[in-house]
Amino acid sequence: MTEVTAPATGDGKQPATAAPLLELREIAVYYGRVRALNGVSLSVNEGEIVALIGSNGAGKTTTLRTISGLIRPAKGDVRFRGEPIHHLGAERIARMGVAHAPEGRRLFGRMTVRENLEMGAYARHDRGGVRESFDRVYTLFPRLRERHAQLAGSLSGGEQQMVAIGRALMSNPTLLMLDEPSLGLAPILVDAIFEVIREINARGGTILLIEQNAGLALRTASRGYVLETGNLPIAGSSDELLNSPDVQRAYLGM
């Protein structure tokens, strides 16, 4: 499959000639002797929402972990703003503006909501900016303002997901990566979370999204990649993918 260049998105940004914000070229990752990714290439342009869909075990989470520096690829390179970053440590990559809301939320359960959010801004030293980020997160998730002093472990699943996304936003990231944000959430909350995702994007945020609910993800994103067992992903605009019979059969349950 060849790389499909991103169509101009409706968000007003023109990615056409500029280098993509994030680019993965021929990434291969091994867990011990098991090959998890085998030559995965994809790109994310500034201001886009890109969805990464595929079966369980296809390597979606591994891809995100590779981008955020938690796993070092055996082959290939990851470029952020044109600079190779795959040899950097996770904290360096986070400081460059890549935020990761991991699958299963992974909150600090015995810290309050506010403390969890503060952890997201750990690397930042601009107090004014951090305060702004707090305001922004609390505006996006009014619920979290109400519950700021509650222990994260005692929140319901949906609220925890809000904290996870909020925590990622607290670093004021250039690129936000979300791993299964709808997992285990009530339909009404899924709607709310995706509403926030669109809003973050409307304010200029770039988002790379993993989602099992492929239909919802593709309708939210402008482009998508379908990853199948770690191989070169199928790429296309959301409409192309939504209308592809293969994708419909395998991931949309039609």
């Binding site: 867990y31 955020s68 520096g69 938690l70 440590g89 986070a94 991991p102 952890m119 750990y122």
Partner: peptide, 16 residues
Amino acid sequence: EAGIESESLAAVQGRA
């Protein structure tokens, strides 16, 4: 073996 790749959430958050 597994522990090595599943630690360090703190690292994702920009600490360390």
